[in-house]
Design a protein around this nucleic acid. Structure first.
Lengths: 340, 340
DNA sequence: TTGAAAGCGCTACCAA
DNA sequence: TTGGTAGCGCTTTCAA
């Protein structure tokens, strides 16, 4: 049986109220008493029961974090940074992974809602209305998505895309493909929109090749379509997809960047491990998580103030081996002479 | 203000006790009443406050999960499978990442202890005594570690190593290197021990090259030592380290498997993405997580019974491009002719 | 079968 | 500055 506040009270020869105060509002008790209580608590190994405390204060000391898929190395990065910042503020993390099943988001929000002070929603796909409905009055902060005036931490996808397109155009590419991710993903929509605008402005062609699962296999599946599209460069929704492209290109004997250039998003650690290393837009993962927690904490302190409720971060282009000068002609669509 | 049991009681025209029963022990109330209550609960969107329930039942419905480093793709796999199984049993997951800082384990165990019904400790490094002390009377299940009679899920590292060595020996290798991981990691100790035994039994030489951080950079750092050790094959503590080796070998112009063969552990998804693809020992991640949760649930049901308290799983060798016939001589230690 | 009452561990209020 | 008391939302006796 765990040691409760009463045990400490008895040991210190004071009342439970005093123990409570001595521990959480030390200024309100006499130094002598405080010390006595703290020593007793220490000796007994007392740790307040957070659930019981939460019941009355209305605060659990927990933060919920919902991510689409831990298997994508991008998200563990976010989780870690959230974790670090949360722990600093003495919060624990409830983690849930939706496994890319959009419907699971709402269920998880509902399930976690009661046990946490607020939820960090990473790249949610659920429609605005459903999301807001599911949250009820649980404070939320969106990561990588923007909805009305809901506090959010986002990365400027427009700027990121501009960097990528400028880079490709400078290399001489005039026909660029995009392998999209989940249609409902905000990042995907933003990237696609920015690609349309930016390529048009630069006077180059954009080919929307396909939309695939944001995974390695998605990239593998899209690779042949990319080749058939006759582009000299391709932007992938994320690094996983880009790596899938690279892999299939390699299997088909299509040289990167000789025959075709590839750009990804996220700069997951493996983007730098393959050869040629992937050119990608590095997301400031660490900052994202930290900023998310901070926004949420702020929100918990001042539920009214919404002034600082948005933070926009920036991605940075990492130019690596997978992009190079445009080939004179698009990549051959097959390396078997006969099949052309 | 969230809807409480009283609201439902009022709406259904019954007492709070009845609501409680109708929801958690439906057989004890009249079908008519039950329906009325359930409808009311549904309409109001009532979800019991788990903290309050836990206060009286002594069960939180939460499971703690502590992993060394989410950045290693092996662990997200475990987390996901734990998550899935836990959710089936209507448990939520408290996740904590120690960031490979051994000391953090104890703190986290203490911090989580009170808020969960039990803890899943994945690959902990802490000494047996400290660990048991920190746990107090929180039930724990160890993943990838064995301590006395503490319930655990492990993979038979001896068998895994046997598979790897047999494979390498069959290819003609006679001098095999090992790049170790954290000295305190149980898996590392087991693998090292098994390597010693197995190589000796096969009459081949084992060179313990180095011990590095279980990360990509660790492998990169060890690569030159491996080459200097004059081995024709190298076993790495895990895939991340193996990929680091591969990367550095590639940079130095050392052919894999032409000049040297590489074997990793885990079969993280990226092991199959590089070329040549990494030969590795696939851990049954999904089963590990599931088994861990099941053991813990069992433990919570019958704190006494310890019969089924251990589960041993098996790794499977995935032979891929990174291993091949032994070169006649060990890999050249440099590709610069002059420097030899 | 149902309701009233007690109490889980804690904090917040009010008096002293 | 301290202690007593009430009550957070829920479950679980015990009576009715």
């Amino acid at each position: 049986m765990p040691v409760t506040i009463k045990d400490v009270a008895r040991a210190a020869g004071v009342s439970a109220s005093t123990v409570s105060r001595a521990l959480s509002m030390p200024d309100l008790v006499l130094p002598r008493t405080r010390e006595r209580v703290q020593r007793a608590a220490g000796e007994l190994g007392y740790h307040p029961n957070r659930a019981a405390r939460g019941l009355i204060t209305g605060r659990t000391g927990n933060i919920g974090l919902i991510v689409p898929d831990l298997t994508n190395p991008f998200f563990p990065g976010v989780v870690k940074s959230v974790q670090v910042r949360a722990r600093q503020a003495d919060y624990s993390i409830f983690l849930a992974d939706t496994d890319e099943r959009d419907a699971a988001e709402v269920d998880l929000i509902r399930a976690l809602g009661k046990q946490v002070d607020g939820i960090l929603l990473c790249s949610p796909r659920t429609s605005e209305a459903e999301l807001l409905d599911a949250c009820g009055d649980t404070p939320i902060v969106l990561l990588h998505r923007r909805i009305g005036r809901v506090p959010s931490v986002t990365v400027d996808n427009g700027d990121a895309v501009r960097q990528a397109v400028a880079h490709l155009v400078a290399l001489g590419h005039r026909r660029i493909g995009y392998v999209a991710g989940p249609r409902l993903a905000w990042s995907n929509r933003e990237r696609l929109r920015a690609l349309r605008v930016t390529t048009a402005a630069a006077g180059v062609e954009l080919v929307e090749v396909a939309a695939v699962a944001p995974q390695f296999t998605g990239g593998v599946a899209a690779a042949d379509l990319v080749l058939a599209a006759g582009v000299t460069a391709v932007v992938a929704y994320n690094d996983l997809v880009a790596l899938g492209l690279l892999n299939r290109f390699n299997a088909r004997g299509v040289a990167v960047p000789g025959d075709i250039s590839v750009v990804g998003f996220d700069d997951i650690v493996f983007a730098g491990m393959v050869s040629p290393a992937l050119t990608t837009l590095a997301q400031p993962v660490e900052e994202t998580g930290r900023a998310g927690v901070e926004l949420l904490l702020q929100l918990l302190e001042h539920p009214d103030r919404a002034a600082t409720a948005r933070r926009e971060l920036f991605a940075q282009l990492m130019v690596r081996g997978s992009t190079g000068p445009a080939p004179d002609r698009p990549a051959r669509t097959s390396n078997h002479e006969g099949s052309a």
